[in-house]
């Protein structure tokens, strides 16, 4: 798939809570085919201390409107600057990058997202449903305040929430949710590494395939710098080109 570098226009910005927002960016040319799990690398301009692009999951793609949705949590100077973007601002983006989640057919799929790691799961949920799968999503967050943007998942299947303080949904971590007592055929996850490792352990115990999306720090995003490697059974390989999605059997987890 050909990689592109293009200026996008900020078309819409929605604050989900203080620190989390979704921006819609409109491409200047028709979007290429974008797969669930792929990411973009965006240029952040006019900051004092950021230098490299910021890799962000593709949250959703609307081909009719020619927009990509980016789900962003402010965690540093770069993402804070992205939060200051105004409608009409230009955003230079290298895309589409990385591989994709597998899309099985007619299976019972479980999606588990932790915090802003939920970002790629909405687009994945759509693709899974389109392929005839049953989709169950669990979002794990600290408290009700962080349980944002649940409705969009409902059009593709069921959505459950776990909170660490029990303020909404079931109290605990997503891997402790009662729906896990059901039988699933596949798990897909993105979020903090301890959570993904717990999902991997659950999947192994049930003997079902599990795919995780890693977010190693990277410079280029397209396989040139060799900075974002992950230690796999095949040795050090680039997360940006051979990932970010890995079957847990490839990893030394």
């Amino acid at each position: 798939m050909k990689k592109l570098v293009q200026d996008f226009e900020v078309l819409h910005k929605e604050e989900l809570n203080d620190g989390t927002f979704v921006i819609d960016v409109k491409a200047s040319a028709p979007l290429p085919d974008i797969k669930p799990g792929q990411f973009v690398n965006v240029l952040v301009e006019n900051t004092a201390n950021t230098f490299l692009r910021r890799p962000l999951s593709i949250h959703f793609v609307d081909y009719e409107k020619n927009i990509i949705k980016l789900y962003i949590k402010k965690i540093g100077e770069g993402t804070a600057k992205l939060g200051e973007l105004l409608l009409g601002d230009k955003l230079n983006i290298v895309f589409p990058l990385g591989n994709q989640y597998s899309i099985p057919k007619n299976s019972k799929t479980l999606l588990i997202g932790g915090g802003c790691g939920v970002a790629p799961l909405l687009y994945l949920a759509k693709h899974l449903k389109d392929a005839g799968n049953e989709v169950t999503t669990i979002l794990g967050v600290r408290s009700a305040y962080d349980a944002v943007e649940l409705d969009p998942y409902k059009q593709y299947g069921r959505i459950f929430v776990t909170t660490e303080d029990g303020s909404i949904g079931e109290k605990g971590y997503p891997t402790q949710h009662s729906v896990l007592n059901e039988k699933f055929d596949y798990t897909f996850t993105c979020g903090p590494e301890p959570m993904m490792k717990a999902v991997a352990a659950y999947s192994k115990s049930k003997n079902i395939p599990c795919e995780v999306s890693l977010e190693n720090t990277m410079a280029c995003g397209f396989g040139a710098c060799l900075c974002c490697v992950t230690d796999t059974k095949r040795g050090n390989i680039c997360t940006c080109t051979e990932g970010p999605v890995f079957n847990i059997n490839e990893l030394k987890w």
């Binding site: 230098f51 490299l52 190693n216 720090t217 410079a219 974002c228 490697v229 992950t230 040795g235 050090n236």
Partner: peptide, 15 residues
């Protein structure tokens, strides 16, 4: 094989 991850850190105006 190169060095273990992490291999990169962003710095002001550089890496």
């Amino acid at each position: 094989e190169g060095n273990p991850y992490p291999r990169m850190a962003e710095t002001p105006s550089g890496m």
